[in-house]
Amino acid sequence: MPVQNFEQIFQGKIDNEVKIEPKDWMPDAYRRTNIRQISQHAHSEVVGMLPEGNWITRAPSLKRKAILLAKVQDEAGHGLYLYSACETLGVSREETMNDLHSGKAKYSSIFNYPTLTWADIGAIGWLVDGAAIMNQVMLTRTSYGPYARAMVRICKEESFHQRQGFESLLVLSRGTEEQKAMCQDAINRWWWPALMMFGPKDSESTNSDQSMKWKIKRKSNDELRQNFVDMIAEQIKTLGMKLPDDKLKWNDERRHYDFGEINWDEFWQVVKGNGPCNKQRLDARKKAWEEGEWVREAAAAYARKKASPNPSKGGALEAA
């Protein structure tokens, strides 16, 4: 069959909402776009463990400590599902991770901001997981099957994270003056970076058109961002806090909230590596990977020994 026919069959499936599966023929660019996007997403989950992990040992109550530990652990799990989804496209986890460590692959810029106070943990859950959900709910219907299925599992947990983050801020917002100030300060610092998570404006987004045609994406950056603003502008009323935007105002005609202009210089600076923590995040990941090398080697060596047909000793592993 000529490639053209393959392409027709492929686009036909997309148009008819049939998922593309690993063994199906797909255009090279479709494969590459999915690899890029899924791996970026996987890296975001794993790098995202760092800013929140920063407060695990200092969580203010045993209950909060347990919630935070479980949350960060969930993110590791998300990373795993996504690396597996990536493997179905023919790239190993090791290759994918090497691209992160070499700086070739990106991850969500939001994680290049520091967690300065405890309130940042609540703000991340509420705003960052909240923004991620907007994107991920859309991705549960993405055209590549393994990615869509990973998203279904992940979305359930992400909405739990968002509720927990909100609840943690709610307690602060009803606490002492110092706690309220801590809460407002965290919202001030995380609000704009959270809006940037949806990427450049539609007019400047390079990959969008083709991704829409292939139904990798189904909503534009600006649409998703607007949905997010509309959601948060309502939720913040319960907190009795303010979003740091003078232009935020309900627009009755549009049936949406209007909001101010994002600082796109800052956005591009952080993408280029000049955010407050780009270096620290990447260094932390590289350090974990490099210091884990002897462990992975030892585990592999031991597994090889056990697989060889020369069982020298009994099986304490099983008996233990």
Partner: peptide, 27 residues
């Protein structure tokens, strides 16, 4: 819990965090 996010491989990061969670639950 200090290991969380810094383990030698993701699966073990998850495992040591699990143990940490169990211990904190007992405490």
């Amino acid at each position: 819990a200090e290991w969380c996010g810094h383990g030698p491989v993701l699966e073990q990061d998850i495992a040591i965090t699990n143990i940490s969670l169990d211990l904190i639950g007992q405490a």
